[in-house]
Design a protein around this nucleic acid. Structure first.
Length: 590
RNA sequence: GGACCGGUAGUUCAACUGGCUAGAGCACCGCCCUGUCACGGCGGAAGUUGCGGGUUCGAGCCCCGUCCGGUCCGCCA
């Protein structure tokens, strides 16, 4: 027997009991006559006292080092009032050791387990010894929190009659979307499975099969590069799909889940209920992003009309000119504008960031000299500029103007710490355009999911300019994070062929790629729609983490390597031979 | 594929404008300590400053190259 209680369990009511505890030596304080141990497991810490006069255990106790695993039997004692540790849930008691057994020793650690300060070790080191970092309270609590989030999701979905169905892991490579991870087939040399990027097609086929409401905590694999909020390689989605619901019905069904996760599981506040629904174009126009952070204002204004009338060359040449007015303009030094804000704008494709200030009722600095007094006066009225303001301008295509000034908006908010960490501002971004034009080739292509139902159906496809056609396509967004895309699916083969034709696909090409889907839709396909929020992003949002790796137990680094196990790795030639594969040196190929 | 930032004992950091025998906390080793809880005290060991080259009387610091890591762009329907 190893334990009667966990290290986080004992309280005043246990005083007088004889207990058995096992755990790790979190800290030791060897005082000569007395030895204190902080014994730790995932439930907490209990202080053990050892009397050095007790020869039987004192010799063993003196050998103890950090992270040894020990089993201790002893009596639960009440601590003196002055000795109570208020930081520990077990702080009113301690265990006086009667016997001690070392179950496992530990080498000197590459880093310490108890968090002593703000300093973080190099991430590569922490990933290599991830099992040690997982012993730390902060990471352990996040991983436990993730488990609570997933448990709550399952309860919610099950109680709303969703059925959990596992879809294949070994599936087929899909032409559009992300780069696939391929798995060679031994029985079919030269052929490959692909790991699913998402169970998109399977879940639609489940709707055709009549499973009405499906969900799954689904692993998704994509061979794309990492970001702070995007795992390289693999991640999980709460994938779901429902039949016989339109977009509004579906939002009403799903919204309470996100509200409850926010309020009950994370203990945070929802900014607005029900969640606002913002058309894509409006989100871009007002906030300069299709995933705006709505916890603060700072809205953009279109001033193209005013700008075109001025003689300022930069404004005259651009399609669209947007402005952002920010108070306390004196806060913005040249250094902040040039380094931080201009950078943010340029990263979104802007060629620069124009600005001017309105201080002591005078326009000054930046581009102010390019405008007449009269023009500036009109601008002041147009934008309602108050004293001590700074005005930023973006002049470019509509999209670049919005996105670059949106990036400036976000950078200012971050600098001023405007977002409230205890609030989650959820919203649905709706009415995404079906198509977009590639700026270089001029080709029309799907802007998002080709399986979405166009608004207005066949009539829109036949009569409208493709770039004006909106889809029943939506994102759920919170605090500037895109949790998921979703859509009402296109289940009508005729509309599907037409939608693909607009993007330049022939009927044969569609049949070759998606014939199985079209086939299925010809046997009675119910109207259906769905959503697939990323679990990692959801947990990040709910726990205010900013790096996706801190909510994953064994994450991959930016190069999609896992330093602890050493993946990816070479395989021996026998394995390759069996699969009919040969590795070609990439450099010598040239 | 591209841009930017970083790399100094096991670890977290320091070392001003190029002057150094590269320091400090924690961890590690030894001794002392009966109420600690970031215990304390005394002593000790620990470094090819990522790697290679250059400039210089002298390089952790400047220059060139390279490797590694991170952030961002491309990419991710």
């Amino acid at each position: 027997m190893y334990r009667t209680h966990t290290c986080g369990q004992l309280r005043a009511k246990h005083v007088g009991k004889e207990v058995l505890l096992s755990g790790w030596v979190h800290k030791h304080r060897k005082m000569g006559g007395l030895i204190f141990l902080d014994l730790r497991d995932r439930f907490g810490i209990t202080q053990i006292v050892i009397d050095s006069k007790d020869k039987k255990i004192a010799d063993k106790a003196k050998k103890l080092k950090y992270e040894y695993v020990v089993k201790i039997s002893g009596d639960v004692l009440m601590r003196d009032k002055k000795d109570v540790n208020k930081n520990l849930s077990t702080g009113k008691i301690e265990v006086k050791a009667k016997d001690l057994e070392i179950l496992s020793e530990s080498k000197t650690l590459p880093f310490e387990i108890f968090e002593s300060g703000k300093n973080e070790e190099d991430e590569e080191l922490r990933l290599k010894y991830r099992y040690l970092e997982l012993r730390r309270k902060k990471l352990r609590d996040t991983i436990i929190f993730r488990s609570e989030v997933v448990r709550y999701i399952r309860q919610y979905m099950e109680s709303n009659s969703f059925i959990d169905i596992s879809t294949p892991i070994l599936t087929v490579s899909s032409p559009e979307g992300a780069r696939d991870y391929l798995v060679p087939s031994r029985l079919h040399p030269g052929k490959f499975y692909a790991l699913p990027q998402a169970p998109q097609q399977y879940k639609q086929l489940l709707m055709v099969a009549g499973f009405d409401r499906y969900y799954q905590i689904a692993p998704c694999m994509r061979d794309e590069d990492a970001r702070a909020d995007r795992s390289p390689g693999e991640f999980y989605q709460m994938d779901c799909e429902v039949s016989f619901m339109d977009q509004d019905d579906f939002f009403k069904l799903m919204e309470p889940l996100f509200v409850e996760l926010t309020e009950k599981v994370a203990g945070k506040k929802c900014m607005q209920k029900p969640f606002p629904r913002i058309p894509y174009k409006e989100a871009m126009d007002r906030f300069g992003s299709d995933r705006p952070d709505l916890r603060y204002d700072l809205e953009l204004t279109d001033i193209s009309k005013w700008a075109k009338k001025t003689k300022f060359n930069v404004f005259n040449k651009a399609n669209c000119i947007k402005a952002l007015v920010v108070d306390r303009g004196n806060d913005f030094t040249r250094k902040i504008i040039d380094n931080d804000l201009c950078d943010a704008a340029e990263r979104q494709g802007a060629k620069g960031l124009a600005w001017l200030k309105y201080i002591d009722n005078e326009f000054e600095g930046g581009v102010s000299k390019f405008f007449t007094k009269n023009e500036l006066d009109k601008l002041r009225k147009l934008l309602n500029i108050e004293d001590n303001s700074i005005i930023f301008f973006a002049a470019d295509t509509w999209e670049t103007a919005c996105l670059s000034l949106g990036a400036v908006r976000a950078a200012i908010a971050e600098k001023r710490e405007l977002p409230d960490q205890n609030v989650i501002a959820w919203s649905w971004i709706v009415d995404f355009p079906m198509y977009e034009k590639d700026e270089d080739s001029g080709k029309i292509d799907f802007s998002h999911n080709p399986f979405s139902m166009p608004q207005g159906g066949m009539k829109s496809l036949k009569t409208k300019n493709p770039l004006d056609i909106l889809g029943f396509q939506y994102d759920i967004v919170a605090n500037g994070l895109e949790l998921s895309s979703g859509a009402v699916r296109n289940k009508d083969p005729e509309i599907m062929y037409k939608a693909f034709a607009i993007a330049g696909y022939t009927k044969k090409q569609v049949d070759d790629k998606f014939g199985h889907m079209i086939n299925a839709f010809e046997f009675g396909a119910p109207p259906h729609c769905g959503l697939a929020p990323g679990i990692e992003r959801l947990v990040m949002l709910l726990s205010s983490e900013t790096n996706i790796r801190s909510v994953v137990a064994f994450p991959k680094n930016q190069k999609a390597e896992e330093p602890m196990m050493g993946s990816p790795a070479k395989v021996d030639s026998e394995q390759l031979k069996e699969l009919g594969l040969r590795v070609i040196n990439k450099k010598s190929k040239k």
